[in-house]
Amino acid sequence: MLIPLLGLIIGVMLGFVLPIDLPTSYTSYMSVALLAALDSVFGGVRADLEHKFDSHIFISGFFGNTLIAAFLAYLGDRLGIPLYYAAIFTFGTRLFQNFAIIRRIALNKLQEKYKH
C-alpha cells in the first residue's frame, strides 16, 4: 500500500517542479479527468487486493476513462448538455464502492492476522 502513496508524493513534487500550466478555461475538464483517474486507481488497488489485477485492463482503463471523461465534459459544454455531471456521478459512486470493498478486504486481512 506504501508504493502508490510514494508515487503520489513523487507526482506532487514533480508537478511543483515541472513548469506545466493548464489554461484556466480547461479546469472543469481537468477536474473530471482527475476524478476518472482516481476512480481507475481505486479500481486498480481493489483488483490488486482481490488478486485479479491485470495490467492491460488497468492501464487502458486509466487512459481510456480519463480521456473519455474529459472529452465528454468538453462535448457537453459545446452542446449545452452538462455531461460532466454524468461523469462525476458515475466515477464518484464507483470511487466510494471501490473504497468500501478495499476497506472490507483490509479489515478481513487484519482480523485474520490477529486471530493467529
Binding site: P4, L8, G11, V12, L14, G15, I20, D21, L34, F58
Partner: peptide
C-alpha cells in the same frame, strides 16, 4: 499512475 495523478492534482 499515481505519479501522473499527483502531477494532475498539482496542475489543477
Amino acid at each position: 499512475i499515481c505519479i501522473i495523478i499527483g502531477i494532475m492534482i498539482v496542475m489543477q
